[in-house]
């Protein structure tokens, strides 16, 4: 177990260093990282100071070292649009993004579990086909488009839910649908196939023979076991939601990390962009790490995967 933890921690660390390296490369790709990191009205002295800070006259490895040592301290430069350190600006907005991603995940689970179970139970029937189509639609409809349609129909025409902003639970529903529908297809399929396996197992056959009602068998005994593969993937889905939230935040004027970074791209506020990419990667890696490790504790079989 301990070895497994070390291995995962080590992998996570490499992944984050790699992400930092990608950001570093992107910075150099632009040709002039100094111009990228300083506001346009920076003075010649600012430029000179930044050149020294980045170590532009020194070997490439040293440059990355300098970048890396700033990065681990969370220093990605100041946002010149907002006059504050880029990372702290984004950390302020992280809770909003986490909230949205979590809501999207909850929506996806609420939809995928009944769909997956019912399509396994009535395999080949109309429920199965409808569920499949519904799930596939979610995969094919871009989340931002779903969001726009929801705004027009649910918020503006029917006036059932607020169209934008953050605050109450009601504000969360539409963005959560727009964000959460996408993974429903994959989740449904995972659950459906593991349900099918379980439903054909000897163990369930025995319970049937004993005369336990089918409904009870499906929803209690089979689902409990069939959910394991789905549960192990939840971390991955959650982390993916964080990335997906970047566009959904723009559609719903959600005050999160994604919207801030998108605006920073347009305003050429590069410190915020690079901090955003690193933050997204770190959150992604950490979430997956936590999920993996906790499953490692719960279900030792997974460790050997």
């Amino acid at each position: 177990m301990r070895q497994y933890i070390y291995k995962r921690l080590w992998q996570g660390a490499i992944a984050i260093v790699g992400a930092l390296f990608i950001v570093f490369i992107a910075q150099r790709l632009s040709g002039d990282p100094v111009a990228l990191l300083l506001p346009m009205d920076a003075t010649e002295e600012d430029f000179a100071a930044m050149r020294v800070e980045l170590g532009l006259d020194r070997p490439f490895v040293v440059q990355f070292g300098l970048f890396f040592s700033d990065a681990v301290r969370g220093d990605f430069g100041d946002s010149y649009l907002w006059n504050q350190p880029a990372m702290s600006l984004l950390l302020d907005r992280l809770p909003a993004t986490l909230e949205l991603a979590l809501a999207g995940l909850v929506f996806a689970i609420l939809l995928a579990v009944p769909l997956g179970v019912l399509s396994a139970a009535y395999r080949g029937g109309w429920i199965d086909n409808t569920a499949k189509l519904f799930a596939m639609l979610g995969q094919a409809m871009p989340g931002f488009w779903v969001g726009l349609l929801l705004i027009v129909v649910i918020a503006v025409k029917l006036q059932w839910l607020p169209a934008y902003g953050r605050g109450t639970l009601a504000h969360l529903i539409l963005p959560a649908i727009a964000l959460g529908w996408y993974p429903v297809a994959a989740m449904t399929r995972t659950l459906r196939s593991s349900m099918l396996d379980i439903l054909e197992s000897d163990y369930i056959r025995m319970e049937r023979a004993v005369g336990i009602p089918e409904r009870l068998i499906i929803w209690r005994y089979a689902l409990r076991n069939a959910a394991v593969p789905l549960v192990t993937m939840i971390g991955v889905y959650f982390a993916n939601m964080l990335g997906g939230a970047f566009v959904i935040e723009v559609v719903f004027a959600w005050p999160g990390v994604g919207r801030t970074v998108v605006e920073a791209v347009f305003a050429r506020d590069f410190p915020v962009v690079q901090a955003g990419v690193v933050l997204a990667s770190v959150v992604f890696v950490v979430v997956n790490l936590i999920v993996d490790l906790s499953y490692g504790f719960i279900d030792p079989r997974i460790r050997h995967d």
Binding site: I16, G18, A19, I22, L29, A239, G243, V261, V273, A280
Partner: peptide, 16 residues
């Protein structure tokens, strides 16, 4: 895989 694709796209969009 640890760099989510959309943030990655934003990064490249701002330098290229």
């Amino acid at each position: 895989m640890s760099v989510p694709s959309l943030p990655l796209a934003l990064l490249f969009a701002s330098v290229l």
